[in-house]
Design a protein around this nucleic acid. Structure first.
Lengths: 224, 224
DNA sequence: TTATTGCATATTGTTGACAATTTACGATAT
DNA sequence: ATATCGTAAATTGTCAACAATATGCAATAA
């Protein structure tokens, strides 16, 4: 890292932010599972810092709905039951519709190209039946769409919900080698829609896409 | 306060939470205006506590989008420009639709009665041309609806956005003695809708209600 | 007069220590 | 054997002090 980068880092980053990002990453990737306790002292000494910044990061994670404080008992990664996951999906569905409408209007050619690249990679993962990699790209696809709406409030709101969904135990098992093929087709249709002049089509597709995800989630959860 | 209450308080509340609630209240009521700096030491000594809990509360407020950290420069109440407020409304509109649909299905008679009471008070304030009191009741009306959907994720998401809107300077001036009359009629119609068997009507009305609010906000902001 | 340098002050970022509470475990009495 | 009490360890909640950075002002030089 150049000294210029180091200066920029020190100017913008605090230990609290670093801890926050690290822990959110661990939660999102499943390194930290729902229900797992987070001990301040252990994390602080692991990272070679004091407990203050760790506690501040905990508060940020709490507000994001990723951990829960139990006074004098510590912090745990939040657990979501099926009902809570369903309720989050209920909120997500109309937001997907809005994302579709807005992104269809605002998408630039460079942004569209970026989405297409993700889509190409998804097709490759389907061909190789690589479900974990496909799942990650799937997440990136929808994240890009939300970001390219240019509406920061929408992106924040959307991202909040999506990250919280990862706290539902069955969420990781949404896809298998069979369903990713169907999923890819849906994503292709969505891409066509957002690059078309029809402003309502993509919204409709994305809404239905989210509804289908919810259905699959309930099915997988019911049988588990 | 009884000792029982005191025990319950100590068991669930931390200084951090108290500071957080106090500051959010001050921001929401306009005691702390957008752009105002928040000094850790001053708040801590004012409340007779140390800076630690204050900093933790700051982090929570940051995640709620109510304050902004500028490293080594302190924390300020966030300022919203018209575009940001518009974007928040864009997200709010479909959520209002969802709230209408869900609350129509789930509203109990006791909950409905609570909403009616607020509505009665609103009518009274209109008769007395008490705009500030009406504005507060208006907020409570919509807050109740969101809560009575029974969807915690929806309520959190909705409340986040609504509180953030208060950071837009012209937001307080949405209403005047003329418009609260019209507003009251709209709320009456909404109440009728949520107590009717038509599950889509309330959603439609609430969506339009939010759209109108946005229009009024832009108009007021443009002329200011 | 204006711009710049340097210092004093104020504020934030971080740390380590102390107080309070919970949890676990063993001793004791029934 | 079981239940209860009490102590010890671990963990969190809070605090006060230290270090680093930014801000404001005065002095100085062009």
């Amino acid at each position: 890292m150049s000294s210029h980068d180091a200066i920029a880092l020190l100017r913008t980053q605090s230990l609290t932010n670093l801890v926050h990002e690290e822990l959110e990453q661990r939660i999102a990737t499943g390194q930290l599972l729902p229900g797992a306790p987070l001990r301040e002292a252990a994390i602080a000494t692991d990272m070679g810092i004091s407990r203050g910044p760790v506690r501040e990061a905990f508060r940020m994670l709490e507000e994001r709905g990723l951990v829960m404080f139990e006074k004098n008992c510590g912090v745990r990664v939040r657990q979501l039951d099926l009902q809570q996951a369903t309720q989050i999906y209920q909120v997500r569905i109309p937001l997907e519709g809005l994302i579709g409408e807005l992104v269809t209007r605002t998408l630039t050619s460079e942004a569209g190209e970026q989405v297409r690249q993700v889509l190409d990679q998804m097709a490759e993962k389907v061909a190789h039946q690589d479900v974990p990699a496909y799942t990650e790209l799937n997440f990136r696809f929808h994240d890009l769409l939300a970001r390219f709406t240019g509406n920061a409030a929408l992106y924040d709101t959307y991202r909040r919900l999506v990250v919280q969904l990862k706290l539902f135990r069955s969420y990781t098992f949404r896809h298998d080698p069979e369903t990713i093929g169907i999923s890819l087709q849906e994503h292709n249709a969505i891409f066509e829609a957002i690059t078309s002049p029809d402003t309502s089509l993509a919204g409709e597709l994305l809404r239905r896409h989210a509804e289908d995800s919810l259905t699959r989630l309930c099915a997988a959860s019911g049988s588990a």
